[in-house]
Amino acid sequence: MRVPGYWRNMPFLYRLAGWKCVHCGAFHNYKPVVCKRCRSREFAQIELPASGRLIAYTTVRSPPKEFAQVAPYAIGLIELDDGTRIISQLTDFREDELRDGARVEAVFRRIRVNGDQGIIEYGYKFRPALRRS
């Protein structure tokens, strides 16, 4: 639990907001000083689309201690509708819905709870899209 770090990263963790390089288009999920691909210093603030499709997935069964309570949990590689690829926990999936190409959408969830006294850290996860297109 590191509260200032959590606070600094809220834009991405809460609503997939980040910075896109004006020159090469690379997406940064943190506030960059220089572009990680082309070293440009010009960025546009954007929000990534909140829906996409599942490219690959797995289930973590022996999790790090922060995630003991939610084990087992699924992790997915997701291609968002604009082509950006992101890693996310998957939630509310029935086992038969975990498949390549499944439509998914972002939701807001508890990620780490930090016991009874610490801060509750929230962020995005992806679930099966309600409207399956």
Partner: peptide
Amino acid sequence: AGIDEDAATMAVEAAR
């Protein structure tokens, strides 16, 4: 509610 849901997360979903 799922294991990762609480009043705040559901409030956010309804607000969105």
